[in-house]
Amino acid sequence: MGVLGLTSRKFNKFFQIKYKIINRNYYTQKRLLSSNYSSQNDAILPVLIVGAGPVGLVLSALLTKLGVKCAVLERSTTFSKHPQAHFINNRSMEVFRKLDGLAEEIQRFQPPVELWRKFIYCTSLTGSTIGSVDHMQTQDFNQIVSPVSVAHFSQYKLNALLLKQLEAVGFTVRSHEGLDHRPLAEREILMGHNCISVEATGNLVNVTTSFVKEGKHIEKQIPCSFLVGADGAGSTVRNLVGIEMRGEKDIQKLVSVHFLSQELGKYLMYEKPGMLFFIFNPGAIGVLVAHDLKQGEFVLQMPFYPPQQKFEDFSSEVLFFS
């Protein structure tokens, strides 16, 4: 995941996680996950999740509701404040209904649907409109195919709601401080730890992580019964256990600019409300993602073609051509 991520990417495959469980016996697996099973070694986590994005946090909440002990590793030292992904489909919202009113919270805090249901094609944000498409259908909102509707809600806001729920059931967000001489406990989200190796030994998985302390890289080994890779499209876990990424790679490079402008948000809200603005003019082309018109939060994405182009070519004049 880059600095801003690809904000137009949808949550369409939110829970279609590719994973590999490294264990030999199904019945052993079932016993290890059971809340009634008492491990001889309390230092061994039943489930270790790598990745504290929406998938990892939701999985943590669901496992905890089922009585399965788990903890989370995250390579970033802090949670991102950039919008990132923003469209949540019906199936994901159905899962969120099982998390103590999460779906209802998202629907309550998201922008009104009339402000984001359209895709706008234009020569510039203040210029002529080439056309617009209402990408929502009746069944998206009238509970025809699902008991809950789709949503438009930035990923960092979703993460904040998930963290609030996890903290309510005893989860703690920690750095490496205070963990050097003790095992990773259940219901902990450990920040700043990068998974660097995975090794199966008997019925256990030994995960080696690396973190920086006082300018030095320090390694720590965390044993678990099950390891889940929820660390995104460039998953380190997937690569370490030999699961290939299917499909075409590196389809397009984009320069993304996250910015706030209540003035622009107010203008678009009254003149041409929409979620995505596809802008075409002789100076440049790009897509503006309107995460929240009321708050004036946007991400501008422009195609980037190295080596013909350099990042330095994208001056403020080029970026804000619209």
Results as ranks from 00 to 15, higher is better:
Met302Thr: 09
Phe321Val: 15
Ser316Thr: 13
Ile243Val: 05
Thr209Tyr: 13
Met275Pro: 03
Ser225Asp: 03
Phe311Pro: 08
Gly234Leu: 12
Met302Gly: 09
Ile243Gly: 00
Ile279Cys: 10
Ser256Gln: 11
Cys224Glu: 08
Tyr267Gly: 06
Phe321Ile: 12
Asp292Met: 03
Phe320Arg: 09
Leu319Thr: 06
Leu268Gly: 04
Gln262Asp: 05
Phe314Pro: 07
Ser316Lys: 15
Met302Glu: 13
Arg238Asp: 01
Leu268His: 00
Gly215Thr: 04
Phe226Ala: 13
Gln252Leu: 11
Ile251Ser: 12
Ile222Cys: 08
Val228Met: 01
Glu214Ser: 09
Val228Gln: 01
Leu240Thr: 02
Glu271Trp: 01
Gly247Leu: 07
Tyr305Val: 06
Lys266Met: 01
Phe311Ile: 02
Gln301Thr: 07
Met302His: 14
Lys272Asn: 06
Val212Ile: 13
Gly234Ser: 11
Lys294Cys: 03
Ser316Asn: 10
Leu264Arg: 02
Val228Asp: 02
Ser256Cys: 07
Glu244Pro: 00
Phe278Gly: 09
Arg238Ile: 01
Ala290Phe: 06
Gly215Met: 04
Ser210Met: 15
Gly247Trp: 09
Arg246Met: 10
His217Leu: 10
Met275Val: 10
Phe280Trp: 11
Val212Leu: 12
Gly232Phe: 09
Gly229Cys: 10
Ser315Cys: 08
Asn281Gly: 08
His258Trp: 13
Leu293Trp: 02
Gln295Phe: 00
Gln301Trp: 14
Gln295Thr: 03
Gly296Glu: 02
Gln221Asn: 12
Ala284Met: 15
Phe298Asp: 03
Leu288Trp: 11
Phe298Glu: 02
Lys294Gln: 10
Phe277Asn: 02
Leu300Asp: 07
Gly215Ile: 08
Lys294Gly: 02
Val299Ile: 08
Ala284Pro: 11
Ile218Leu: 14
Leu227Cys: 02
Glu317Pro: 06
Pro303Asn: 14
Val255Met: 13
Gln309Asp: 06
Asp231Lys: 08
Ser225Met: 05
Lys213Thr: 13
Phe311Gly: 07
Gly232His: 12
Gln295His: 02
Val299Met: 12
Asn281Glu: 15
His258Cys: 01
Cys224Asp: 07
His217Lys: 14
Glu317Asp: 07
Pro303Val: 15
Val241Ala: 04
Tyr267Lys: 05
Leu254Tyr: 11
Arg246Trp: 13
Leu268Asn: 01
Ser256Val: 13
Lys310Phe: 06
Leu276Cys: 07
Gly242His: 05
Ile279Gly: 09
Ile218Gly: 07
Glu219Val: 13
Gln309Lys: 04
Val257Phe: 13
Gly265Val: 00
Lys213Pro: 12
Leu268Thr: 03
Asp292Trp: 00
Tyr270Glu: 00
Phe211Asp: 12
Val318Cys: 08
Asp292Asn: 01
Pro307Tyr: 00
Ser225Lys: 07
Val318Trp: 09
Gln252Lys: 15
Arg246Asn: 06
Ser210Lys: 15
Leu260Trp: 01
Leu300Ala: 12
